[in-house]
Simulated assay, not measured.
Amino acid sequence: MLDRLNDRERLLVFGSGAFVALLGIYTILSLFVDLRNKLTEEIYETRSQATQLDRIIREYNYLRSLQSGGSEEDVSVMYSKLDQILVRYNLKDKVQTMKDSTTTIRKDYSKIQIDVSFRSVLLQDVIKMIYDIEKNKQVQAKVDYLTFRKPFAEKEVYDINLKVSSYSRISKGK
């Protein structure tokens, strides 16, 4: 069939065939690129959804503890759990002061707050302790306040003050 065509017609047929082939390859590649971009977007959305879900679960557990009265109704229970965490990270002997206060909020909730002052501690040890309190829920509480300062310029130790608060529902029978 190509034998009957002259040189100009053959060049036109081969050129058209090459153009159609390149157009087909371009279309297939653009479909793959679009699919890859969509999958990448889904991965990013899924990661953010996992973070969102984790935050919602933490908030739910916290609010559930408020509704049920929480597990930290007694200051001594909160102190003992905090002491366990302090010992775990070798912070117990670095505690300068540790004092608590209890307040009532809107006649329905009790807030127990423990103020802890550390002197000359490594910052990463305190961050690990806060992670255990906030994320791992070793204590049914939240860290409400954190300050730190570096007393010595040449050393990597800090003076740290933090406040750990626990909320619980006041029983109507009390």
Rank of each mutant, 00 (worst) to 15 (best):
L2H: 04
D3L: 08
R4K: 13
R4G: 00
N6T: 02
N6Q: 02
R8Y: 13
R8T: 13
R8S: 09
E9V: 07
R10I: 11
L11C: 02
L11F: 13
V13Q: 05
F14H: 06
F14Q: 02
G15Y: 05
S16D: 03
G17A: 10
G17D: 11
G17W: 14
A18I: 09
F19A: 14
F19C: 08
L22T: 14
L22C: 13
L22H: 11
I25F: 12
I25L: 15
I25Y: 15
T27C: 04
S30Y: 06
S30G: 05
F32Y: 14
V33I: 12
D34M: 14
R36S: 14
K38A: 08
K38T: 03
I43D: 10
Y44P: 04
Y44H: 13
T46Y: 14
R47C: 01
S48K: 15
Q49K: 12
Q49H: 10
A50W: 12
A50G: 04
A50D: 06
Q52I: 04
L53F: 08
L53Y: 07
L53P: 04
D54H: 12
I57R: 15
R58F: 09
R58Y: 09
Y60N: 13
Y62C: 08
Y62A: 13
Y62S: 15
L63M: 11
S65F: 00
S65T: 00
L66M: 07
L66I: 01
Q67A: 13
Q67K: 10
Q67Y: 12
S68P: 10
S68F: 15
G69Y: 10
G70F: 05
E72D: 08
E72I: 15
E72Y: 11
E73T: 14
E73P: 09
E73S: 10
D74R: 15
V77P: 02
V77T: 14
M78T: 10
Y79E: 05
Y79R: 12
D83M: 08
I85E: 03
I85H: 01
I85W: 01
I85Q: 07
L86V: 09
L86C: 10
V87I: 14
V87W: 02
R88T: 15
N90S: 12
L91E: 08
K92F: 15
V95T: 02
V95P: 01
Q96D: 09
T97Y: 10
T97E: 08
T97P: 00
K99W: 14
D100S: 11
I105S: 03
I105Y: 12
R106M: 10
D108T: 10
Y109V: 00
K111T: 02
K111V: 02
Q113F: 00
F118G: 00
R119Y: 12
V121D: 01
V121K: 05
V121W: 05
Q124V: 06
D125T: 02
V126N: 00
V126C: 01
V126A: 00
K128H: 07
Y131D: 15
K135A: 03
K135F: 09
N136F: 08
N136T: 06
V139E: 06
A141M: 01
V143T: 03
V143N: 04
L146N: 05
L146W: 01
R149I: 03
A153V: 11
A153L: 13
E154V: 06
K155D: 02
E156G: 02
E156K: 12
E156H: 11
E156V: 00
I160K: 04
N161R: 09
N161C: 03
S166M: 06
K172H: 06
K172S: 03
K174N: 09
